[in-house]
Design a protein around this nucleic acid. Structure first.
Lengths: 157, 157
DNA sequence: TCGTGATGTGTTACAATATATCATTCTAGC
DNA sequence: GCTAGAATGATATATTGTAACACATCACGA
């Protein structure tokens, strides 16, 4: 359906980055966590927890229970390695790993791919918008749905 | 837990506005739809579908099945009378009813209340951010979590 | 008047997403 | 090796959402 979202080499670089962050922070990048990271990175689009459960069961030849996967996802999200796409109940790689998520998620309704973009002005404006209402901002979620460039080019159908 | 989000009179005005929009557009504001609108409007915070199911069962003295409620919510969301809060799987009134939702949702993590604010600059910036990536924007979801002014004033606890 | 189609609601069954709880295993550091 | 904390396994269940079909109502033209 989709080409892979990141090339194999890019994925390796990205994983290295996460490994080193884990080193710095004293976090354990266990086999399971690594495996889930690579599954998400290798998918062309965000994966749901249950898609991961299936993929893991496939890969390991035995069932993996939901709590196991959700816990791992919690870890990955908390540490900014993965982002939860709220409007899809799915998880995507965070391509500025380690920062707490702070970007805009562009979600193509045709092919399902997502792209993350950062925009400092936008962040500032969101903060200002919140402050103007006396609201102390702690976490932002910006998800935009539409048609990605590639699908737009490929035309209708 | 919460005071009501809108006073009774304000709620009436708001319902009138929706009634007239339905008139203009040839939509039927049936008893069930009206009842669900009022339940959402009367709650201090967004309601989940199942909270509505319970409330309706209470009010009507007989069970109401999920599809009934979800269909009604679909109608209300499609027509811009209610907004779905993605990060909470819940539904809140849209206080510029009839426009397709386009605002920023401020969600207090302490008391659970939400407030909707519009910001034209923000919309423009989002559109620009999407365009810059060749993305054709169709729908935006901006949800900000934090502490609302009231909870901030009332202090820790 | 009688269809007939469009719309809204009821009902049953089930699918998909997520969490609570307790048991077990692993690992780092002593 | 021991032990405390972290990570994972396992079972059960809670929460959120849909598919599919039946029934009811109403407007409108034959």
């Amino acid at each position: 359906m989709n080409e892979e979202s990141v090339g194999v080499e890019a994925r390796q670089v990205w994983l290295k980055r996460i490994e080193s962050l884990c080193g710095e922070r004293g976090l354990q990048l266990t086999a399971l966590r690594r495996q889930i990271l690579m599954l998400i990175a290798g998918a062309g689009a965000p994966l749901t927890a249950y898609a991961l459960i299936d993929a893991l069961a496939q890969a390991q030849g035995r069932p993996v229970a939901p709590p196991t996967v959700y816990r791992t996802l919690d870890f990955l999200v908390e540490n900014g390695f993965v982002v939860r796409v709220e409007s899809r109940n799915a998880f995507a790689i965070c391509d500025a790993p380690g920062h707490h998520h702070h970007g805009v998620m562009l979600i193509c309704t045709k092919c399902g791919t997502t792209a993350e973009v950062d925009n400092h002005d936008l962040d500032a404006l969101l903060l200002q918008t919140a402050s103007a209402s006396g609201f102390r901002l702690e976490k932002q979620m910006v998800e935009l749905e539409g048609i990605c460039e590639r699908c737009e080019r490929l035309g209708p159908l």
